[in-house]
Design a protein around this nucleic acid. Structure first.
Lengths: 116, 116
DNA sequence: CTGCATCCGAACCGATACTG
DNA sequence: CAGTATCGGTTCGGATGCAG
């Protein structure tokens, strides 16, 4: 029996190269339009943004407000339910910060993630 | 700049198809041998197990006790530092459980993960 | 028994072009 | 402006076989 599948369900929300960035943007800025997100996240393209957004939307983390008009306008925002993710994000961010510190302690200032 | 990189650092520990399973096994059973883990996790093979284990080891989450003898014996266990992950796991597991419930509420009993 | 190297397939990421 | 479709590259997951 798969006890860990619950775990993976939670993980499933956050995995994906752009999920955390999108969530952080939405949390920080509230509702954002498609183009707003695209501008706020350098290096992303429409396909990726749409894809990740749809997954987030499917999981009821973000809410999509569609304005069927010309010009088309779509706003994305964190849903009520999605805000419960904030605590999880907080814990992970906190641990992640401590972890980076711990890594630096072990291996020095080596940056194993990426460099600007 | 990259505020979310802390986030990804934390995420980096948990992502990977088998990381959660390995961690859960190690937490539940304490120190385990290589073959123990292999038996405890159906569907995994040596390469994957070794790979994930080495990443976990690099991040100082698990400790590898090597017995250079015949027959070779290696025991893996959660390190002191790695136990701090327990809290994160707990939060994610808790949220994941609630999330599954929420998904079922929205989409019925659809199992979007996998079936036994 | 434990771990590594190689190869293969699948999933994911990404850029461009096209539609409403 | 928002989104889809298609194609290609890169990474990741996985099976097998070899070595200490």
């Amino acid at each position: 029996m798969k006890q860990y599948c619950k775990f993976e369900s939670a993980l499933d929300i956050l995995i994906g190269k752009w999920k955390p960035v999108i969530l952080l943007q939405l949390i920080a800025n509230g509702a954002m339009r498609f183009s707003e997100l695209q501008k706020a996240i350098p290096g992303i393209n429409k396909k990726m943004l749409t894809q990740q957004l749809r997954e987030l939307e499917y999981n009821d983390i973000v809410h999509r407000e569609v304005y069927h008009q010309i010009p088309p306008k779509v706003e994305y925002s964190i849903s009520e339910y999605g805000q419960s993710l904030g605590a999880v994000l907080q814990v992970m961010n906190d641990w992640g910060t401590a972890h980076i510190d711990h890594m630096n302690m072990l291996y020095g200032a080596e940056d194993r993630s990426e460099q600007e």
